[in-house]
Design a protein around this nucleic acid. Structure first.
Lengths: 328, 328
DNA sequence: ACGATGGGACAAAACCTTTTGTGCGCCTCG
DNA sequence: CGAGGCGCACAAAAGGTTTTGTCCCATCGT
């Protein structure tokens, strides 16, 4: 644990000078700088992050908070963020907010004073956490939805995307199209449901309330939800799932019930995660540009941190793409 | 940003007393405690992490460092770790060590003074980082391999597991079994290769050096590697891949070359990630108890942090399970 | 009733930086 | 040759907590 004092002593300068060499916030003569740098390299010194932070400095860490680490969509986003952060020497950490025995509020609290900024996916679920962030003065960006109460965010047109995929089902002759959502209060669920309704309305297909069902954004949630939708007298002939994980669960359920896809029931997903093209049959889905989303989030954040951002909330919209495969 | 001083003032006690109420490291009379706690709740105070850390305290954060966030094996491990950490109010963060423009050493450096402990997967790749950790006094646990130079670790019997899956291929009548590994220097690659050789030796099947190939631990790596293995005059009749991601890439390559699986070439993976049962055909693979691995890592770490661990390195071995599906 | 004991609160030091105001010495210009 | 100015390094304060030694007061025992 070599501290700045040892370095100063070894180099025969004051600690202030060492600090200035490291941070570069004030000019230091070339000869002194060289000497100090040599000592730093030799001793392997680097500033204690906690101490630096105390004196009003930055942390150098950015957090990505996701509702479910196992959703393969997020690693792609993280990758995109790294593209932007790594050259700036910011360290990205990913945290799962869906931890049992711990509320989201706790997590934001814990995180808020350890990171310079956060990218938050799906905070719609609890608003008090946002208050904590704002109060702590930690810039944040919404991933996929606008932060309630205002703030920057990056999103895709989920309403439009879902409308497209449901219209595609209509175009294939399906008339009893069910919607299998994620958690009901989540913004992505609401928007995708809105797209679903819009598509049905546009095609003048009647919407049945018992064809809309909510479940967790997981494979297991999809399996359970689809079983309920399909295992009745009058089952739908298509299920539009709110994401790929759910859709894969739907395939599980269909298989268990002896139904053929797309023969008996067509299935579509959303996100185009890797697994979507791997399942049997390959899933029709909508591709979101995950990597580009990550980059956009990172850029917005960086501008805030640099103080270059205007004092208004900004929204970045990225486009999606319908991918038709064999499940429909 | 309400500090301990405000709380002390509002409660009419000294800052020391407030600290003692919060940390509980010294007894405080019931009446005083109640008063202070009321004020804390009303003001929404909680200690500044950086300041706490400075005074020799803990961070309350644990890091999981993985070589590739997109590998679905790790989220499962993370989940298992959460099971143990959440009740203890420790926050888990996941970091990808495979960031371009940044060496692993940098990452360990940055992390080492911000977290109380780390779980490290696949550090075999660079040893200087370990030196940094040891010097920083951050306890760490190896995930899947022994830390070079000693230390706790949790592992499964990769040699045995791979031997089993290769023996299974032999039992199915395959005689030209190729090994498609991950990065050559990685410990898992070496152990699985060892298992491969042991199985061939036991079955008295000749081993051909040109049937051993190394690639990245990714789908793309598998695709590229398999193309090399399969696209020659005298291709193997089976490929045992070092993990599922690679195996899925092998399926891609086989499809592209017009080969049938398992008709023309049998394929096996390792890890039993979610996607393994989803691909077409479903993969024969070896299941590693990811969640249990996570829990074991967490427990080892906790014992170190609590100072309850003996001063020797400990190894926890968990058992695997061969899962036979249609790809073989 | 007085001294001993101990519970409980407090003051101050310590943790390691960064930042800012100050002062010194040298160079330049008048 | 003298005065003003500037480039550089330094000293000291600040940042928010935890910890430790100390002190006070109340209670208990004799």
């Amino acid at each position: 644990m070599v501290g700045i004092r040892e370095v100063a002593e070894a180099a025969g300068v004051s600690v202030a000078t060492v600090s200035q060499v490291v941070t570069g916030k004030r000019p230091v003569s070339a000869s002194t700088r060289a000497r100090v740098e040599e000592v730093i390299a030799r001793l392997g010194y680097f500033p204690h992050p906690a101490a630096s932070q105390m004196r009003g400095g930055r942390t150098g860490m950015i957090a990505l908070v996701v509702p479910n680490l196992a959703n393969p969509f997020y690693p792609l986003v993280a990758d995109g963020m790294q593209d932007v952060f790594a050259p700036r020497d910011l360290l990205l950490t990913v945290t799962d907010s869906n931890v049992p025995e711990r509320s989201a509020v706790t997590i934001y609290r814990l995180l808020s004073r350890r990171v310079d900024a956060m990218v938050v996916a799906q905070f719609g679920l609890d608003e008090p956490s946002l208050a904590a962030l704002r109060e702590a003065g930690v810039p944040f960006v919404g991933l996929g939805q606008a932060p309630p109460g205002g703030g920057d965010f990056v999103h895709t047109d989920d309403v439009g995307g879902f409308r497209e995929v449901v219209s595609h089902l209509v175009g294939r002759g399906r008339r009893r199209i069910a919607f299998l959502g994620g958690e009901e209060p989540a913004i992505p669920t609401r928007q995708r449901l809105e797209g679903y309704r819009a598509a049905l309305a546009a095609a003048e297909v009647p919407a049945r309330t018992d064809d809309v069902h909510f479940a967790e954004f997981t494979r297991e949630g999809g399996r359970a939800g689809a079983t309920i939708l399909l295992d009745r007298k009058d089952p739908p002939d298509a299920i539009a799932a709110a994401n790929d994980l759910i859709a894969i669960g739907v395939l599980d359920a269909a298989r268990a019930l002896g139904l053929r896809v797309p023969g008996d029931v067509a299935v579509t997903g959303y996100d185009d995660i890797d697994a979507a093209s791997l399942v049997n049959p390959p899933l029709t889905t909508v591709e979101n540009p995950a990597r580009e989303i990550g980059r956009a989030c990172a850029r917005l954040l960086l501008e805030r941190l640099d103080g270059e951002a205007p004092d208004v909330a900004r929204a970045v919209a990225l486009s999606h793409r319908l991918i038709i495969r064999e499940s429909s």
